[in-house]
Amino acid sequence: MSDESTTLELQGVGVTYATGAAAVHALRDVELVFEPGEYAALLGPSGSGKSTLLHVLGCLQTPTAGRYLLGGVDVGSLDRAQLADLRGQRIGFVFQRFHLLPGRTALDNVAVPLRLQGVGRREREARARQLLERVGLGDRATHRPGELSGGQQQRVAIARALANRPGVLLADEPTGSLDSAAGASVMELLEELRGEGRTVLIVTHDEALASRAARVIRLQDGRLVSSARVSDGRPA
């Protein structure tokens, strides 16, 4: 997992939206490289382009300028099906609002990415159960999202993001919908995952959370303002 294949490289990446006659530059000329196993925070005010950058890194959005190489592969050259495969096999997403399927159990939710990759039912269930244990929710496997707290739902979402053992984990404001205690618990979990050699990128506007990362990348008006390595990313 933490090998050359998870190197992320942005070369002059820009994203421009055409809204009528005007063009909105969500990202401009971003140059960044993330080595395998990095733990980085993307920091910036609302509208700074941090979510757009995360979408580009997660292959949900293709740059309108520049190149994005994931493990040496130019993502811009891939079609929709190839992009889907790339997301399913190498990238895990954690969303601010969890986005769990409300009618399914925690186990089923965690198993969704496995099912999309064609993993058989028995193996799927075993791995999903293992992941729920890993995030401390082994006893909540049959619970539906409505029966879980916000922090528990985000843990299920993290377990889901890990299902296909991706090399990259992208989290968009993962604690934004949680109270401070649940948020701290989720952050600890994400930091542990980084310790397993996985590249973890977190979007946040919270300076305190960002300061826990090994590298802080600041964005302003779609431009890269700074990219600084501040610590080893582990809590003191």
Partner: peptide
């Protein structure tokens, strides 16, 4: 829509 969008984000092919 939200479910389909999620599935796409998690690796579902549009054809699927």
């Amino acid at each position: 829509r939200r479910e389909f969008a999620l599935l796409v984000a998690l690796g579902a092919r549009p054809a699927t």
